[in-house]
Design a protein around this nucleic acid. Structure first.
Lengths: 350, 350
DNA sequence: ACAGCATCAGGGAGCGCTCTCAGCAGCACG
DNA sequence: CGTGCTGCTGAGAGCGCTCCCTGATGCTGT
């Protein structure tokens, strides 16, 4: 491990001295240089350069009460869920947007109830300017807790119906619309006995996709709906259940690609051809899965990275509006939720 | 978006006043309470509770020069690489360890050269106590740059041979040993014409795995080594090349599971049975891949989450030692690199 | 009972920065 | 040439905290 340099870093005072100006003027230059005459700006700039001056963020925060930092809270990242590319891509989108606005990304992963309290305390402690929160489960107390903590927050995915989260700002994919499109596509292909493998129904995305399915298959036989859990194994189980209850089904819409891949195995195992006998559609367009299955998976794509970018943008915009305008309460600049469109990606399975 | 509370948060001064003690005493209690008599401790604790006091980290950092924050730098997260479960798991391990030590995780994702400068500046700016750095490519200037920035750093994976990184502290899997074990297993199975699909050779992990392969297959026919790039498509390409050059090979060691899955497809496509005709071993034990292939993949497992945890632990230990001892340079507490063992996971493919 | 010692509380300085406010220049105009 | 104005610059306070140092307090020993 390399050691930290013991030589104390130069202060604004030192820069000012070197440039032959006051600390205040040096500060002005460092923060944009408005209202300082050109020759002085130049001198200060050079002094900064020569001394390798970097502002002390702690000192700055102390007086400005801004931190140029945003917390990203990912609740309950069970291996299964967290390890999929989903969060990685969202993080990248968020990171890009924050970087563009000189904000730092403080990552908070929570595991269990104790952590909720910890995160709540951290956010309430005013260490960050705002928070981006991912909470997968309907019964998660975190969204309510955070919402109440008085920290500007944008949620990733429509949050559950916890206290006060009805008014929450969130960014989500059009799960319902995407599901509708998928099922309609199956209908277009002439399929009539179309089944649905749901996701874990304690997550809004799963509920919304199920609703989308029902929008098209208005009075679907209950035997054509099986509850899954977003895992390949769950997809297999659900597919077996569906085939047992309704052996002549000719279309399946799975609530994600992982379950679709499980379903695919079961279909093949039972000697059913895809897409000839049964057309199959997934959701997410998780590339390593969707492209590698045989046949490759028709699926509903959502732009994950864009979701992340948008969340960050919404939050930053809200922060800017909140600090600029007098009342941040529902003011003109207060952003509202965004639902991003999805697109059907046609491959071989349907 | 919920707005930030306008009521200013209570200060230590307020706590002290309420508890009827001085600011200094209140501070002592908040920081552990050593040297303060029990009744006073109790009173201060209650005041903290009642006022909902949370220390202002900025003010604290300003004087202590500690930040209780660690930067995690992930260089060049191309979608392909970043989106695999690898980083997610490492992040989780890191997060757990940092949380246990009340440190925050500041995530820095870099994209391109400009970002390098940005990250360098950030780290040199003394905003964090230390850094955990992932850099995949041998020619990446980042490790050298960071190493030179005077920030205590631990690397994830053996870094390349950039300036000064020879002495760098890192945590890595025993890539070479794991590879040896995999190839030896193929030998044990009676395979004699064993091929290797390498990873992208600008990454140390790929080089080390190739070295491990060579350790066992001392004078392997060059036609039995094909360069891949860690992607399924690369695995397919390499497998074709291998079969074209040496149609009677009977064992393959792929440098990761993704490439093994690609190789598997090609083998099947050419009518070769796995493991009967060709035994196949991967690396990583990336579950969604290794378990879902048919046949399931024999592979070399590394404990990714543990790697992350260890990196954080090493860094924190180094920080503690560095601030305690006078000279942090190679002192008693200075940690040295760790190479974690791997284990062969036998499934169906070999 | 009193000196001597250890222990614990409080006063105060100061970390590095921003920001208000006063002051001083320079200019146009009367 | 004097007055009023605009536009920069600098002095100084203070953000909330830690920590040094001094002073007060309780306890032991004789």
């Amino acid at each position: 491990m390399s050691e930290s340099s013991t030589a104390s870093r130069p202060t604004l005072e030192a820069v000012a001295a070197r440039a032959g100006v006051s600390r205040a003027t040096a500060s002005r230059v460092v923060n944009g240089g408005d209202g300082v005459r050109e020759p002085l700006v130049e001198r200060v700039r050079r002094a900064v350069e020569e001394l390798g001056y970097v502002p002390n963020q702690a000192a700055r925060s102390l007086v400005t009460r801004r931190h140029d930092a945003v917390a990203v809270v990912i609740a309950e990242p069970e291996t299964r869920v967290f390890a999929d590319p989903f969060f990685a891509l969202q993080l990248r989108g968020i990171s890009k947007e924050l970087t563009a606005h000189d904000s730092q990304l403080v990552l908070l992963l929570t595991e269990g109830r104790d952590d909720h309290a910890r995160v709540g305390r951290y956010l309430a402690g005013g260490h960050v300017d705002g928070a981006l929160v991912f909470s997968l489960h309907l019964d998660d107390p975190l969204p309510g807790l955070i919402h109440g903590a008085g920290v500007p927050t944008v949620f990733g995915g429509r949050p559950g119906w916890g206290d006060g989260t009805r008014s929450a700002v969130y960014v989500d994919s059009d799960n319902r619309g995407g599901a509708r499109e998928a099922v309609r596509h199956l209908v277009t292909l002439g399929r009539t006995r179309i089944a649905h493998i749901t996701g874990a129904l304690d997550q809004t995305s799963a509920v919304d996709r199920l609703d989308g399915f029902r929008d098209v298959m208005v009075d679907a036989d209950p035997r054509l709906i099986a509850e899954g859990d977003f895992t390949p194994a769950g997809g297999e189980r659900a597919m077996r259940q569906l085939l047992d209850g309704c052996p002549d089904l000719d279309g399946v819409f799975a609530a994600n690609d992982l379950m679709a891949s499980g379903a695919l195995r079961v279909l093949r195992e039972r000697g059913l051809r895809v897409p000839e006998d049964v057309a199959l559609i997934g959701f997410d367009d998780m590339l390593p899965v969707a492209e590698q299955t045989d046949p490759s998976l028709t699926t509903v794509r959502q732009d994950i990275e864009e979701m992340g970018r948008l969340m960050a943008r919404l939050l930053l915009r809200g922060l800017a509006a909140g600090s600029a305008g007098a009342g941040s309460q529902g003011g003109v600049g207060a952003p509202s939720s965004v639902v991003l469109p999805t697109t059907l990606v046609r491959r071989a399975s349907a």
